[in-house]
């Protein structure tokens, strides 16, 4: 009995520590974004204070964060939509392919995961420069699709392979063409996989920095690029950079929170399939 209470207490202490470590850094940034500048560096932190919107007004009115926000939205939504569409079509293609090529192509797509982004980014920068596509949205959207579409293919393929084979046979007997089978039978059943792919692609594209930083220009800077410009400064304005960081992380945390189910199933797919 005594040993049990002791384990209980240990469990609770450990839980509190985990909880605090997971939440506190995010809380500190969000609260700093609402604090008057003088309070930001005060330790121990004030938990009760009068919130101020100065930092937000500065980044939205004097800075260009409204346009960065719009640009991030354009990049993330476009690259995700295209990745999902072409990725799930490719997955179906692999699933109905009967030759050995299916395995080889799947292996090749997974292999692309081993490629460091920098190895592609530098030559791609030179190539985009040659065809004068630097500075707009094309380069950054294309590079996000190149990362997300193979990932979607791989994720959706796993789900299609788990569907019962009878389903395909039955639809074929009903005289459906293979494309009809995809749109009427397979695609509607894929919603969990699509959900995961949408969330993880959005998350990647919204948060990505390296491609965005070099491939965009003043007019097409995304949010992460906006934040990186604060970080590079010699003395960091913590009020404004906290506000900027909050603007970047809060939307995606909220989306992830409500789509938690898809987040977990997407991330574990690899582990389970392995």
């Amino acid at each position: 009995m005594k040993k049990k209470t002791r384990t209980r207490i240990l469990q609770i202490i450990f839980g509190v520590v985990v909880f605090v470590i997971a939440i506190l850094p995010v809380y500190m940034i969000v609260s700093s974004s609402l604090k008057p500048t003088l309070l930001i560096r005060k330790m121990p932190p004030e938990f009760v204070f009068e919130p101020t919107w100065t930092h937000y007004l500065k980044i939205f009115k004097q800075g260009s964060f409204l346009s960065y926000f719009k640009n991030s939205l354009i990049v993330a939504v476009t690259s995700t939509a295209v990745s999902i569409l072409i990725g799930s079509l490719a997955a179906y293609g692999l699933a109905i392919m009967k030759s050995d090529w299916a395995n080889r192509i799947t292996g090749f797509l997974t292999f692309s995961k081993l490629l460091p982004a920098i190895t592609i980014m530098i030559p791609l920068y030179v190539m985009l420069d040659k065809v004068q596509l630097l500075g707009g949205f094309v380069g950054v959207i294309l590079s996000h699709i190149a990362i997300n579409a193979p990932f979607t293919t791989w994720l959706v393929l796993g789900f299609i392979q788990d569907l019962p084979q009878d389903l395909f046979e039955a639809a074929k007997l009903d005289g459906c063409t293979r494309m009809k089978i995809f749109w009427r039978v397979v695609f509607p059943l894929l919603s969990p996989a699509i959900g995961s792919a949408v969330l993880l692609s959005l998350q990647y594209s919204w948060n990505e920095l390296m491609f965005a930083m070099q491939f965009t220009s003043m007019k097409s800077y995304t949010l992460t690029v906006g934040v990186s410009r604060f970080v590079g400064a010699i003395s960091v304005d913590w009020g404004q950079s906290s506000a900027a960081a909050t603007v970047v992380m809060l939307p995606i945390i909220l989306v992830g929170f409500f789509l938690q189910k898809y987040l977990v199933s997407g991330l574990t797919a690899g582990a389970v399939k392995g």
């Binding site: 985990v18 909880f19 997971a22 939440i23 506190l24 850094p25 995010v26 500190m28 940034i29 700093s32 930001i40 560096r41 005060k42 330790m43 932190p45 998350q203 919204w206 948060n207 990505e208 920095l209 992460t224 934040v227 990186s228 604060f230 970080v231 960091v236 913590w238 950079s241 906290s242 960081a245 970047v248 992380m249 995606i252 945390i253 989306v255 992830g256 929170f257 938690q260 987040l263 977990v264």
Partner: peptide, 27 residues
């Protein structure tokens, strides 16, 4: 709750920890 950090952009993570490890007033 435990999965929140996963959704935060790496550049923001760098910023957050720059703040946490700040010698002047870092947690």
């Amino acid at each position: 709750i435990v999965t929140i950090p996963l959704l935060v952009s790496p550049i923001i993570i760098g910023l957050i920890w720059k703040y946490m490890f700040n010698i002047n007033g870092g947690m």
